Amino acid sequence: MLKRILVPTDFSPTSERAFRYALEVASRTGGTVVLYHVYEQVEAGFIDNETKRTAYNQQMETDLLKELNRMNVKYQAAFPKVIVSTVLGHAPVVDNVLGFAEEHRMDTIVMGTQGATGLKKTLLGTIASRIAEKSDWPVWLIPEAYEWKLPQHLVLATDYQLADKKALPLLTAIASVFGADITVTRIISGHITREETAKEQARFSEYSNLLQKDFAASSLSFQLITSSSIIDTLEHLEEEIPYDLLTMVRLKKTFLQRFFTESFTRNMAYLTRHPFLVMADDA
C-alpha cells in the first residue's frame, strides 16, 4: 500500500523535505522511492540550429541527472536500505507526473508545497496543489517550513461521506507504520440552531459507532468541533487536536461545481503548517 513512492522535485529546500519524508516512510514499509524531475526541452524558437539545440538539451539533461543524484546522495546515506531511482520527465508537469504514476503503478505521491496568497492563489496555485486536485493516488503535501518528526497523531476530517470511510484502511496502515493514533473529527458551524446542533451530535455519534464497529482493531477516537469558521479551525486545528498528519478526501464535483466553487482541499494545501494527505474519493 505504501511500497512505491513518487517524489516530484524542483530541487528546492521544500522538495528536499518531501524527499526526506518519503524516505522515512519507505524505510518503515520496505518501499522504494522514485525521485522525479520534470523539465522542458529547448525548442527551435530558442535555438534554430538543430545540432546545437540537441547538444544543449543533452547537456541540460546530464546536469539535471547530476542534480537528482546529488539530492539522492545527500539524504540516502541515512536510509541505506531504501532503493531510490532518479528519473527525468518532460513538461507539462502535472500531466507528466500523473502519467508516470499511472504507468509505473505508484502507490502514493509525496510533494513539498509552498503557501500562496491573493491573486497568485486564485489564478495559479502551486504545482503540488494542482496535482493533489487531479490525482487518483494519495498525495502527501509537506509544508515548506516543516521539520521531520515521527507522526504520532493522525486526523481524518470527515463530512460523513462514504469516501471518508474508504480512506480509513490507508490511514490505519499509516498509523500502524508509525505507531500512531487516529482521531476522526467533524467541524460544524457555530451559527446553526440548537436543534440543528443536536441533530449533528446525534449523527456524529451514529457515524462514530459505525466506524468503531467496522475498524474495531484500530485505535480510533472521535471529536466533534463547533466553529464560527471551518477554514480557520482547520488552519489552526492543532489548537483543538494536536496532530502530525491531516487527511481529507477530495470529493468529485460536477462541472458547474468545479466552475463556480474553489477547491477546499486546494485552500488547505496553502494554509496547513503540517503534512496534509489528500485522497481521491475513489482512491
Rank of each mutant, 00 (worst) to 15 (best):
A173V: 02
F260G: 00
E200K: 08
F178R: 03
L211I: 06
E235C: 00
S228Q: 12
L245A: 01
V110G: 00
F260Y: 13
A283Q: 10
V177E: 00
A91V: 02
E50W: 09
G115N: 04
I83H: 13
T254Y: 14
R20N: 08
S12C: 11
L68C: 12
I230N: 05
T272Q: 15
V93F: 09
V7E: 05
N209C: 03
H153M: 03
S228E: 13
V249H: 05
T197N: 05
H274Q: 12
A163V: 08
E240R: 08
T117K: 01
G89A: 12
E61G: 11
D95R: 02
Y270F: 15
S129Y: 04
V7R: 08
R53I: 14
G31W: 00
R4Y: 01
I231R: 13
Y56C: 06
F204I: 11
T254R: 15
F215P: 08
M1A: 05
S12N: 15
V94L: 10
E144V: 07
A26R: 06
S227E: 11
E103Q: 13
E102V: 11
V34P: 00
I241S: 09
V33F: 02
R203E: 13
L65C: 11
L170F: 12
V87E: 14
Y39N: 11
Q161T: 15
A175E: 03
E50G: 10
D244G: 10
L65Y: 10
M60F: 05
N96Y: 04
